[in-house]
Design a protein around this nucleic acid. Structure first.
Length: 444
RNA sequence: GUGGCUGUAGUUCAGUUGGUUAGAACGUCGGAUUGUGAUUCCGAAGGUCGGGGGUUCGAAUCCCCUCAGCCACCCCA
């Protein structure tokens, strides 16, 4: 009796009370809506996979972060650390029935046993969308368009999608004879914006000759608007078939996105964007909030041409991206962009006249029948207290009915944001109440 | 995983060179006010000082370990 278990959560794992869960679900709903508007369909996969599925990719870093253990049957299993690897397994297993192109989205938790920081947790949610089975540039362009639409739908105007193409980097590496060290070079390059060119130069010095390192840095240091970057790239990659193809793809993407109406300032060609993950082969993109760039990319992705090679003979190209929901939420929290709403209902009916309980319940039911979300306060209490509750929970409107209203067949419709209230007739069809509520509820 | 900073009511923080019963503001609850919610007044509840061990006559304060949060590296959403 005296020895209680201390209630607590693991490092990097969190509880989500209503005030945290409501904006969370709003983002999920928004992502779902945007993905579906492009024809992506939902799938889900198990949280737990056979260990060899997850480690097959063989990156030492992801192996270190993997949650792994023996299950009750002695199998080696692991928790998925992203949604792309399970997708590769899923596609290799089911593509015969699904056919191509296959467009799916998946919104689910992933786990990484790394050290925590602001916006970095051990359990977090990713909102992935991918197009499998086509190498078309159109799918690349759509991927960036989805990211753009998604952030706009989430209420952002000022954000930057940094775009690059792995072919440009690979072309240069090939030209320089650095292909074998590609992974190291790209990782060093990826840090350019953060640590500056001197540090990157030092890191490159360890794996390349001074001339090679200088050539890599020259490419990555290109600045200016997108057109001028493209123009400056030409001579640097001349003679490299890969590099020239990369420039072609970047140009195409840039032109197409402009034509699709993406504001030019949102799209930044950035040759230093490499993405750490090995599986990207073409276009790569990272998205930063202009108001809080230091929190990192909130939506990243790219093209991978050999994703299923570990699991199937068939070669299936793909392109996609992932919204980091928890990082985005951490950013929105810090930017004060999260509304302080704790209720999912719009309208509160205070329990005011103690003997009229059943009439309140009937009114609430009728309003719900008209599509409203309505809460009836569970006990008769002072009206002031109940309105305070309504205010704190974030209700938009209260319907006040006491003895005098019931007697006069009326209802007071109170706008909780402004404090204004109006009295309307209260009849079975609740039409007058609906009419009075409409403008109040329309504000959110 | 490595290194650094931090941890005191629900929240934000005070707390003297180690000294008796750990404070404030805001929030919460009750009342003034059994018909109107961010004002005012009165009152109340709420703390194993993150947890464990040690030094000491005495620890929120000093030391060690541990847990958690933040920052940098690493990597990434």
């Amino acid at each position: 009796m005296s020895e209680r278990i201390q209630p607590r959560t693991l490092k990097g794992f969190r509880d989500y009370p209503p005030a945290a869960m409501i904006p969370r679900e709003w983002i999920i709903d928004t992502a779902r809506r945007v993905y579906r508007s492009y024809g992506f369909s939902p799938i889900d996969t198990p949280a737990l996979e056979h260990l060899e599925i997850l480690t097959g990719k063989g990156s030492a870093e992801t192996d270190k972060q993997l949650y792994r253990f023996q299950d009750h049957g002695g199998r080696s299993v692991g928790l998925r650390f992203d949604l792309t690897v399970p997708l590769a397994r899923f596609v290799a297993q089911h593509i015969q029935q699904l056919g191509t192109p296959f467009k799916r989205y998946q919104i689910a938790n992933v786990w990484r046993g790394e050290n925590t920081q602001r916006g970095r947790y051990r359990e977090f949610m990713q909102c992935d969308f991918d197009t499998i089975g086509t190498a078309s540039a159109s799918a690349d362009i759509e991927t960036v368009l989805v990211i753009n639409d998604l952030l706009v739908a989430l209420g952002f105007e000022h954000f930057t999608m940094r775009v690059n193409n792995r072919l440009v980097l690979n072309g240069l590496l090939e030209k320089l004879g650095l292909t074998a060290q590609a992974t190291h070079v790209l990782r060093a390059l990826d840090k350019l914006a953060k640590v500056g060119s001197e540090t990157v130069a030092q890191e490159l010095a360890a794996i390349a000759t001074p001339a090679q390192a200088a050539a890599v840095l020259e490419l990555a240091a290109l600045i200016g608007d997108n057109e001028s970057i493209l123009a400056q790239l030409q001579p640097l990659l001349a003679g490299s078939p890969l590099g020239e193809r990369g420039i072609g793809e970047l140009t195409d993407l840039h032109v197409a996105l402009r034509a699709a109406g993406v504001p030019p300032e949102r799209l930044q060609l950035d040759v230093s964007i490499a993405r750490g993950l090995d599986y990207y082969t073409g276009m790569v993109v990272e998205t930063f909030l202009d108001e809080l760039p230091e929190i990192g990319s909130v939506c990243s992705g790219g093209r991978y041409d050999n994703l299923t090679q570990l699991y199937a003979k068939q070669e299936l190209p793909g392109v996609g991206a992932s919204l980091g929901l928890d990082r985005l939420l951490a950013a929105m929290e810090e930017l004060g962009r999260l509304p302080k709403v704790q209720t999912t209902a719009q309208v509160l009916i205070p329990f005011f006249a103690a003997e009229c309980r059943d009439r309140y319940l009937a009114l609430a039911s009728r309003l719900r029948g008209r599509g409203l979300r309505v809460e009836f306060y569970p006990e008769p209490k002072k009206l002031g207290k109940q309105l305070q509750y309504a205010n704190r929970q974030g209700f938009l409107a209260a319907l006040i009915l006491g003895d005098s209203e019931f007697a006069a067949q009326q209802c007071q419709v109170k706008n909780l944001a402004t404090g204004a209230s109006q009295t309307v007739g209260y009849r079975e069809d609740v039409q007058e109440i609906m009419d009075a509520l409409q403008p109040i509820l329309a504000t959110s």
